[in-house]
């Protein structure tokens, strides 16, 4: 092979991708180059001999792949229970977003969406003040009633006791009795003051308890205290 282009030229001759212009150049070269022309002729003959191959029929064989690899790639199929965790997660996320509040009370189960209703603090303070005044008035009335009743009872008891002593001892002891009466009067005044202070302390304690219960109820219902 004297021509250095022979190998490429022969290969190009059998290349179906060769363009018309390149094929024309190839033919022009073989007309001028005896080495390439001879090599091309021999290659064509060899190529033709190879193409005399007669296709053979396929002997019997198993076309089914082995069981280990027979399973084709399956598409992912989701059953309903595989979606359940996702559905629960979505519901919880929705509950958080919508600010769902579930509470139980004396009226049963209640579900509320969104933020708790706002509380008008001025109105609440006014109502509490009115309630406070009402409670104080009621308590004062009660205290006066009790004191009046106690005073009456004590006066009746004292009169009865003085009548009994005068009956038994006569006028000679009138002065002594007056001293005794003065002592009882002073004791009665002291008892009334103590009794009034006790009632006032009891009323204050009850009122503080009621106020605390109200604030606790509002706090449980989600409002501001």
């Amino acid at each position: 092979m004297a021509c250095e282009r022979t190998a490429t030229l022969v290969a190009d001759y059998f290349d179906t991708a060769l363009g018309a212009q390149q094929r024309q150049a190839l033919q022009e070269h073989t007309q001028q180059c005896a080495d390439c022309a001879l090599a091309l002729e021999q290659a064509r003959h060899t190529h033709a001999q190879l193409l005399r191959w007669q296709p053979q029929s396929v002997p019997a064989w198993s076309r089914v792949p082995l069981p280990a690899v027979q399973e084709p790639p399956r598409r992912l199929r989701w059953t309903w229970w595989q979606w359940a965790p996702l559905a629960v997660s979505c519901m919880l996320a929705l509950a958080v977003v919508l600010n769902v509040q579930v509470s139980t009370g004396v009226q049963g189960l209640s579900i509320r969406f969104g933020a708790a209703p706002s509380v008008d603090m001025a109105q609440l303070e006014a109502r509490l003040a009115a309630f406070d005044a009402q409670q104080q008035a009621a308590l004062q009335t009660l205290t006066q009633t009790l004191m009046q009743q106690q005073s009456n009872d004590n006066a009746r008891l004292m009169e009865a006791m003085i009548d009994g002593v005068i009956e038994q001892l006569g006028d000679s002891t009138a002065r002594s009795l007056e001293q005794v009466i003065a002592y009882f009067e002073s004791q009665r005044e002291q008892d009334l003051q103590l009794l009034q202070a006790s009632y006032q302390q009891l009323a204050d304690s009850d009122y503080a308890t009621i106020r605390s219960v109200e604030q606790l109820a509002m706090l449980v219902q989600g409002g501001q205290p």
């Binding site: 022979t6 190998a7 490429t8 022969v10 290969a11 190009d12 059998f14 290349d15 090599a39 021999q42 290659a43 060899t46 190529h47």
Partner: peptide, 9 residues
Amino acid sequence: KTRFYTALR
């Protein structure tokens, strides 16, 4: 191409 030509020869 070279392999092809060599094989044909």
